[in-house]
Design a protein around this nucleic acid. Structure first.
Lengths: 233, 233
DNA sequence: TGCCGCAATCTGTGATCACAGTTAGCTTCC
DNA sequence: GGAAGCTAACTGTGATCACAGATTGCGGCA
């Protein structure tokens, strides 16, 4: 089961696609899973050495991630995981509420028995992980991601999915850093409740309720982060 | 005045940023402005020669555009401007309606006198161009883009703007190809009316009306393209 | 005359090298 | 002992070369 959760796979191991593609997926997965903290530096040469490659594929991968705002690269300076100002975080949150809420609403109309079963399985996994007193944080983050993307995939829009993936690439490091510093947020159960509400809404085809459930999930986490986390400003 | 319209500037000429950045903007501008048709091939070496550079900056720029779906690059095959299936075009249209509609609604609440004046100026330019019997198509497309982005900029969300730019990168070639083949669409005035309705809505702060105006603009053009254009399938 | 096949050319991918600007640590001087 | 300045290591950027697979067009054969 664990193998299916992105945080526990390494894109470098599957031998499909070019080296650049694999490095891109490798870094993207680690960013979404929060394995990098905002402000972290990484060097093309260091990464390429760690991966046993020349710097070319790393260069291309980093350049793509930079184009999507997932990394920042200033000429002749080290590549960094972006720091985010509070205003920027509020902006991206508002956009996520709109877009991910729309995807959830769409999923109500397009969900198939298969995708619904997938959503239910992910909901259960996340709930069970959250209820454990000593939850593995990395695992919980991955399970949360798995639930959300099960919903978004059910919407059946490749365009929407790609946009949402890019958004998660940017907020991944922040959400994860916050959860690491405030693990009690998991036990408060806000996310579990929102997921449950979302699941029920999709099961019953109530689009507006699904949108609100996702909005409250995202909004709740963001409000918490804005209150606790020292973002820039 | 014309210098302000992106289609008539060349990102290669401004000397800010790295060569890769400039090539990226150069190609992105040309894609949005529809200077490439779907299915067009381009070669790294040809582009780099035309620009008087080595292929490295072109490579990075193309790689970023490919990551955003604006170009397609299969290993050892020529880079191509993506062909789009009708289903894919419908998908991207639905997403544009939602996201660009949201941006317009947001603009109603965040517009300043300055941004409103900018929107009004762009609306007038596009209207006057459309009313000419022999409208320059490329100019009209650029003016349409200028109006839309004046609205989206007024929404004050950098995140939203970046997402919308990526969407236009993908639909640019298709919309432009269609207009070239069916120039009469411009004279039918659907776009002019929708723009006017959007402008009035923003001026009066009617968010829902602004959203509907943008939705009808996008939806109208897409319906026309789907009926006339031979997309794949 | 038409079709098959080979070869020259063109494709992106990856590695390596050179370079200039940045950073950080050490030395030296006060 | 502390701070300033210099140097050495490290940064991404760009160019060039080598390679293998795809494409294309020409020539020969039927």
């Amino acid at each position: 089961m664990l193998e299916r959760i992105p945080a526990y796979t390494d894109a470098m191991l599957d031998e499909t696609g070019t080296l650049s593609d694999r490095v891109y997926r490798h870094l993207a997965d680690r960013l979404i899973a929060g394995r990098f903290a905002p402000g972290d530096k990484l060097s093309l040469r260091a990464v390429s050495e760690a991966l046993g490659l020349s710097i070319m594929p790393v260069r291309e991968a980093v350049s793509r991630l930079a184009a999507e705002g997932a990394l920042e690269v200033a000429p002749k300076k080290a590549v960094t995981v972006p720091l985010m100002r509070a205003a920027q975080f509020r902006d991206i949150t508002q956009v996520r509420v709109e877009i991910e809420g729309f995807a959830a609403a769409l999923a109500c109309k397009t969900a198939t028995p298969e995708s619904l079963a997938e959503i239910e399985a992910r909901e259960r996994e996340f709930r069970e992980l959250s209820e454990q007193p000593q939850a593995d944080l990395a695992q919980a983050v991955a399970a949360n991601q798995a639930f959300h993307f099960a919903v978004y995939r059910a919407a059946g829009s490749a365009e929407l999915l790609a946009i949402i993936e890019r958004l998660w690439l940017r907020v991944g490091p922040i959400i994860n850093l916050d959860l690491r510093e405030n693990p009690e947020r998991l036990r408060l159960g806000g996310a579990v409740q929102a997921h449950r509400a979302c699941l029920l809404a999709i099961r019953e085809g109530r689009a507006e309720a699904a949108r609100e459930a996702i909005a409250s999930d995202i909004g709740g986490a963001s409000a918490f982060i804005l209150s606790r986390q020292r973002l820039l400003d």
